[in-house]
């Protein structure tokens, strides 16, 4: 076990510091800092529940060591919006029934954002591929696909299709 050292992470636009050994994963570090919106599902990179954005790209925080992302921009689902002012993805997921137990949702929304950031007008296949690292056991993905398309159209300025 390595000795702890001070790590500074930039999370949702704010610098936060923790003492952690070199093997501390970003998932553990974020949760230890109170960012419990980042969920732990498998700690092996199989399920995507812990996905966060690092410099705009969705990654599994359980496969990322905390010290390796010092100085990078880390965004969690709570960094996208809140209940009063939700991000279009948060609103579409909510309103279209794409959330059931909700445990995969924080990672699923971050992966969805990555898909739309890469291609503002994604095809259904783009969405399938983009979300293939994020497991959901409740929804069968049908309403998630619809929510991502709906949010993408809102983000393109085409208004709410609901």
């Amino acid at each position: 076990m390595s000795s702890p050292k001070k790590i500074t992470l930039r999370i949702n636009g704010v610098n936060e510091t923790l003492e952690a050994p070199a093997h501390r994963t970003l998932l553990e570090a974020l949760r230890d800092l109170g960012h419990v919106e980042v969920k732990c599902g498998c700690e092996k990179g199989d399920c995507g529940a812990c996905a966060v954005s690092i410099d705009g790209v969705a990654v599994d925080s359980c496969l990322t060591l905390a010290w390796m992302v010092e100085g990078r921009e880390i965004t969690t689902v709570s960094g996208l919006g809140d209940i009063e002012n939700p991000h279009p993805l948060q609103k579409s997921f909510s309103d279209l029934g794409a959330i059931q137990c909700g445990y995969c949702t924080p990672g699923m929304i971050m992966a969805s954002k990555s898909v739309i950031d890469r291609n503002p007008n994604p095809t259904d296949d783009d969405i399938r591929v983009g979300l293939s690292g994020n497991l959901c056991r409740c929804t069968g993905y049908t309403k998630i696909f619809e929510a991502v398309q709906d949010a993408a159209s809102v983000m393109r300025g085409e208004g709410d299709k609901q």
Partner: peptide, 21 residues
């Protein structure tokens, strides 16, 4: 009706505490 579920906005915003939180 397909109303937005009462628990959905909190889950979408990452505000819902689960037992492990």
């Amino acid at each position: 009706k397909s109303l937005t579920r009462t628990d959905a906005p909190g889950k979408a915003a990452g505000r819902t505490p689960y037992a492990g939180d």
